[in-house]
Design a protein around this nucleic acid. Structure first.
Lengths: 246, 246
DNA sequence: TTAATAGTGTCTGTGAGACATTATGGT
DNA sequence: ACCATAATGTCTCACAGACACTATTAA
């Protein structure tokens, strides 16, 4: 049995694009929202013209200051997009991704000089502790997710992907307490507010924050101890946690 | 010059999926949100088993009650997703689409029996007047966008696409006056509220609706006449209209 | 005792929801 | 005159924003 279209042609008879996934892995470090970047694998990416002009200079520059990019990969046959994302994070960054969420498809035909490549942009939130070992290996590093000078240096349209990821994550954090499960449970309201301040890039108001978050949290009954000042009640996220399942 | 990846292979050396676009064209008819369906082009879609069992019955059933589906097509080389959507609406439904918006990629490897096909789901809002001529041609028809019995009959995962489209459009209509530009300008607040009632599936409260919409509208100064009761002021949408540009 | 942090009480302005009233046309 | 519809007025309640105050610990 062969599946054909209305003209009797098979699917394979039509040109098909390459489909990639690119992921903005966001985390919070030093009270700032950051994005994970990996060295760009370039293959033979120099054009003939560039090579003939200044091959040596390029080589040394490329080694001293390697281009950075979002971790990504091409989609394999029979694989879901989410699985491709998790695979790319493991292979390119040594990171166990958690819950990649689809943003949108970047389909500008001119965005990739290698050819016809669609990129399905994703975002994933990962606690910085999970990234720990991966960093400083293989040139994996974190960059401020708001730093335009970094984002503008990204290849293809990955600066826009990061911008979309940041916008999406900020929208989530305006409504829910730590939907990305970046905090270890249990936590205090002050810790939660510090986290949200880092993600949002600005301080949410103290009273309003407490009033909107408290009904969405479950009290543990336990209190913090050891710090200066009055001990604090501790909390867990409400039932629909975004924590990874597998 | 040839672009290669980290293993020196070219993009074309990897398996690539077919990429389709499927579009939920939504409109309002008879104060109800409806979705445009077209006859499913099946090619040789019956399996061998089905054929040997009841070929004649299937054939007659297929002709008296052809399967319906969302308009869609495969992405052509060098074409943007939005352009593919507009082309599919023109070719399959004789409709001039307006502003297709991307929803998400449906990537379940088993969703399409013809093979490895990703579908980028889209939604577009089109006034029923624009659909006028297309309907009743070629079996193009409108179905209630809330009718589960219709949606469950759609092939692949198109029922979910429609559900996602409806959800997305309803969210827009909760915040903005007629963002899909379904109403001809100028219009009255009563007409606008009837439209929103149809889209949302429930009546927004009269006072709240007026209070939230009025600041987002531009008064024309003109009044309606001819109807029963006191004449009404008329309005246009606020500046950032969603009307098609080209 | 003091500093530091957590938590509570309360005043006020704004806006949603609800309802009543007035305005202005047709029949 | 009466009805239907549009438009406006206003009452109440809830909550955001703001600020002050109390509570509980360590130094």
């Amino acid at each position: 049995m062969v599946w054909c279209d209305e003209h009797g042609k098979r699917l394979e008879d039509y040109p098909r694009p390459s489909v990639a996934v690119d992921t903005a892995v966001l985390t919070v470090e030093d009270n700032e929202l950051k994005v994970l970047l990996v060295p760009l694998v370039q293959g033979s990416e120099s054009t003939v013209v560039e090579r003939s002009e200044a091959a040596v200079v390029e080589r040394s520059e490329a080694e001293s200051k390697p281009k950075l990019a979002l971790p990504g990969t091409f989609l394999h046959e029979g694989e879901t997009l989410a699985d491709a994302v998790l695979r790319s994070l493991r292979d390119k960054a040594g990171v166990s991704g958690r819950r990649p969420r689809q943003l949108r498809v970047f389909d500008n035909p001119a965005r990739d000089p290698r050819g016809w490549v669609l990129s399905v942009a994703h975002v994933d939130l990962v606690p910085v502790a999970v990234l720990g070992e991966s960093l400083a290996h293989d040139g994996v590093r974190l960059a401020s997710a708001d730093d335009a000078s970094v984002l503008d240096g990204l290849p293809y349209e990955q600066g826009e992907i990061v911008a979309a990821a940041v916008q999406s994550v900020r929208k989530e954090y305006e409504a829910e307490p730590d939907p990305g499960a970046l905090l270890d449970e249990p936590f205090t309201l002050a810790q939660l507010r510090r986290l949200h301040t880092a993600v949002l890039g600005e301080e949410p108001m103290r009273d309003t924050f407490r009033r909107s978050m408290e009904p969405r949290l479950k009290p543990t009954g336990a209190m913090t101890g050891g710090g200066r000042g009055r001990p604090s009640r501790t909390w867990r996220r409400g039932s629909p946690t975004n924590a990874p399942q597998r």
